[in-house]
Design a protein around this nucleic acid. Sequence first.
DNA 1: TTTAATTGGTTTCAATATGCAACCAACTGA
DNA 2: TCAGTTGGTTGCATATTGAAACCAATTAAA
Lengths: 153, 153
Amino acid sequence: MLQPSGVDWTDPECPVARTADLVGDKWILLIIRDSLDGKRRFSEFERSLGVAKNILSDRLRLLVDRGILLRIPNDRGTRSEYELTSAGRDLFTLILSLRQWGERNAFSTDEAHSTLVDPATGEPVPQLRPLRESGAELTPEQTQLVKVGESTP
Amino acid sequence: MLQPSGVDWTDPECPVARTADLVGDKWILLIIRDSLDGKRRFSEFERSLGVAKNILSDRLRLLVDRGILLRIPNDRGTRSEYELTSAGRDLFTLILSLRQWGERNAFSTDEAHSTLVDPATGEPVPQLRPLRESGAELTPEQTQLVKVGESTP
DNA sequence: TTTAATTGGTTTCAATATGCAACCAACTGA
DNA sequence: TCAGTTGGTTGCATATTGAAACCAATTAAA
């Protein structure tokens, strides 16, 4: 499990809230997007994001502290690289869901956007779908939140 | 498509970035979580989130402006309710991916958390999985980002 | 029916976070 | 060797946050 120093959770029993505490920030999400795309260096993130250096510096420090990035110092002790931990790589599904929602809801039909493809086929990555055990599509209404200490109704 | 007034996109061609611009904020994500759980009133959100009233007020206004919530005024013109638009309901997959990542990575084995179940079976909602067309699991390394104007390699 | 409490906010103000620009030491390339 | 480039840090002005007080309208309780 991740052991960030000194987080105090907004809602400790809710996994959505813990994740929002850890990565619910625009720059953090975009750094993870770029990391999943293979970027590793301070300057690569800076160029790609157009973020102020102090903010980038701060977010990289937070991500390392939160166990999402690993800082790999260069031999010369400078110009280190940042690589995703396994918890970081596991954010792939989350970033993909951001991407697919954006494609469906934040572009008009005549606007172009970048696309994530499977190079084996050249086809766009298929849509993530919430499914029940049976394989049927699952809607929010067909789910029930069970809080800690409650039994499933 | 969503038509929020006066957003200027951090990275207009990237769907991940547009989504991060629209919902990449802790309180916004938690309001959407609660909306998907059926909450509709200012006071319900306030109690559930423990957020300052001015911030809640601001985020609800942003969400309405961004086409994610619909504000439904009461007959008496006050105590309105907020309900998800279809773009808002479509955030279910995103919130589910936040939840599932948190369950996998932000809890130790001895910590309890709330759970989203399928009431038909009582079982937790199955994991979202990025799949290729073939049905095989898809890892980040097996994908390729194609920017606007580039052809798939 | 009068009074008390709740609801859905807005305003004020101090503290915190942001982003721009300047700066810097270490390294790299020409 | 000398001009960049890299990977930051610092200072400062501005924007955002959150706590608290306040308020009018509505609802509940006595």
